[in-house]
């Protein structure tokens, strides 16, 4: 996939991605209105669907609220690339079919507005100048989940996950 980068810093927690005051919303179309609102109140207005969120360490730390993964997915975020992730957010994103990848060093190499290309299979991120950064590719198990659009669709298709 290819998309415009929207760049954030370290420790973008779940309250910054989706503020607690909106946790009583359940409908995806309402949840997406508040995407990254505490991190950047202008984000939902300026974000173009298909964009790629790039962040520093520990993106999605904090709460288990699935709203954080839902809001990014529904707003049209194509992928999230970060130095590391909070573990519950990481799991939630995969379960919903929101692609994400750990890419060490990405925060300092990508600038706001850069057009970047991401290959989830190989884990390679290509920058506008042609430079390539190697991320940690997702396992086939997880790629399969993402391809199906998350665990719900996979379950409906009759698949039952087995331990590796």
């Amino acid at each position: 996939m290819r998309g415009r980068a929207y760049v954030f810093g370290d420790n973008i927690d779940t309250d910054q991605i989706y503020p607690g005051r909106y946790l009583h919303l359940v409908k995806p179309e309402e949840i997406k209105e508040h995407v990254l609102e505490n991190a950047d109140p202008t984000f939902s207005r300026r974000f173009q669907p298909g964009g790629i969120v790039v962040a520093g360490r520990n993106f999605g730390c904090g709460s288990s609220r699935e709203h954080a993964a839902i809001t990014l997915k529904e707003a049209g975020v194509a992928a999230v690339l970060a130095e590391s992730f909070g573990r519950i957010f990481f799991r939630n994103a995969i379960n919903l079919g929101l692609p994400l990848m750990i890419v060490k060093g990405i925060r300092d190499k990508v600038k706001e507005g850069d057009e970047i290309e991401v290959d989830l299979e190989s884990g390679v991120v290509t920058l506008p100048d042609g430079c390539k950064i190697q991320g940690e590719p997702l396992s086939q198990y997880i790629l399969n989940l993402i391809r199906h659009g998350g665990i719900k669709n996979l379950y409906k298709s009759g698949y039952r996950p087995k331990p590796e």
Partner: peptide
């Protein structure tokens, strides 16, 4: 802790 989809499963 887990999110809603994990919990549903």
């Amino acid at each position: 802790g887990v999110g809603s989809t994990d919990l549903a499963g």
